[in-house]
Simulated scan of single mutants.
Amino acid sequence: MASKLELLIEGIVSDMITDPFELVDVEYVKEGSLKYLRIYIDKQGKMSLDDCQHFSHLISEKLDELDPIEENYMLEISSPGLDRHLKKEKDFIREKGKEVELKLFKAIDGVKEFEGTLVGLSEDNEIEVQTSKGLMKFPKKNVAVIRLMIKI
């Protein structure tokens, strides 16, 4: 669940990111003694280092102008990567039919990790995955993380 600050930053940044780019996610997290504002941007094909640098400069200027975060933080602009986490409804639509791995907060019959093919997100906010045990439905609130699986 996104914090109020993350939603605020998403609103500020979303107008700056236009086709062929897509704002994927915004995270504001504390790691050790530092705070990080991570903005994940994607592009059909792949993001380049030049793309990240362009958006880093553009977004940094806007955030300096508006100053929505009072404390010191590190700004990171990056691609969500091959093993991207699925969080928003559009993620579940875009990645339907792909292999995913899913980790639960609480085990089901002693199992907390599942793999399978993403079927989608139901109207009841349940993540549907076709596993080796058949179609399984996981309430989204019970899922710690779901991401695309990387096969080597």
Results as ranks from 00 to 15, higher is better:
D67S: 15
F92K: 02
A2R: 14
L75S: 04
M47W: 05
K46Q: 14
Y73F: 08
I12G: 07
G120Y: 00
G116P: 12
V13T: 08
I152G: 15
L66V: 12
D124I: 10
Y36W: 09
S48F: 05
E89Y: 09
V145N: 11
D91C: 04
E101P: 05
D124K: 15
H57G: 11
V111K: 13
L118C: 03
E6C: 08
E99A: 15
P80C: 09
F92G: 08
L37S: 05
K96R: 13
K88W: 09
Y40I: 01
G134D: 09
G81P: 03
R84I: 03
L75I: 01
L104W: 06
D19L: 12
L104S: 07
L7A: 12
K151I: 14
K103H: 15
K87Q: 11
E95S: 06
I59W: 01
S60W: 11
V129F: 05
Y73D: 09
G81K: 03
L102E: 08
E71R: 11
D124G: 10
T18F: 01
G110N: 09
I17C: 06
V100G: 01
G134N: 03
L34Y: 12
L37F: 03
P20F: 01
V29Y: 04
P68W: 09
I150G: 10
K106H: 15
V143Q: 06
E65Y: 14
G45V: 04
L86M: 11
L148R: 10
P20A: 08
L75H: 05
Q53P: 00
L75P: 00
I146E: 07
I59A: 02
F114S: 01
N142A: 12
T131E: 05
M1R: 11
G110D: 10
D50F: 04
K4C: 12
I59R: 01
G32A: 10
E70V: 05
F55D: 01
S33H: 10
I17R: 12
V26M: 03
I77K: 02
I39A: 02
Q130F: 08
A144W: 04
E95D: 13
F105M: 06
Y28I: 06
V24A: 13
T18Y: 00
S78L: 00
G120W: 02
E61G: 13
S78P: 05
N125H: 14
S132M: 13
V26S: 01
S3R: 14
N142S: 15
V100K: 00
L63Q: 11
I9D: 02
P20T: 03
